[in-house]
Amino acid sequence: MFMRKSVSMLVIAAGVVTLGVASIGFAADAPANPVALGSPITEAQLADWDLIVAPDGHNLPEGNGTAAQGQAVYQQKCAACHGAGGEGASGSPALVGGSVSTTPPLLTVGSYWPYASTLFDYVRRAMPPTAPKSLSNTEVYQVTAYVLHLHGVIAENFVLDKNTLPAVQMPNREGFIDVSAN
């Protein structure tokens, strides 16, 4: 690394070669970067590292799980904080039940979240808070199924996998107004 960079800097300093790569696509007429130090990497090298799961199911891993299987995972790894039935407790939010139209509203995975992918994505990256990323992909599928089942979104034996998860219809799917273009 150090060698490569030193050489690059010397070359730039001497003004001999521009290391920037000509861009195609968005910046076709932008000048090439005078400094271009990124090391090429492949998506395959990022397979275990990129945790982002999109609503369309992009990047969901292999594996599957049902709510029936997820109950044990949930009781062991989640219930102490989120309650035996997902009702929440002091310091930890409810995961199921509730409604956007009560006063005050109770916003939960079940009553509020527009996509099931977000549940898989968030639990895999951030839960439980004391040991994030400690669950296997199978456990994440199972416990995701269990939480969705607790709210009545899917049946107990519905098999959640990379094909079925994106098709799960969340109750508040139409509840959001995208103002990103404003």
Binding site: D50, I52, V53, L107, V109, W113, T118, D121, Y122, S180
Partner: peptide, 16 residues
């Protein structure tokens, strides 16, 4: 990580 995409990821911190 910056992943360039065609749509938002709908992360928990932009939905919930």
């Amino acid at each position: 990580q910056i992943k360039v995409t065609d749509a938002p990821a709908h992360f928990r911190d932009e939905t919930s």
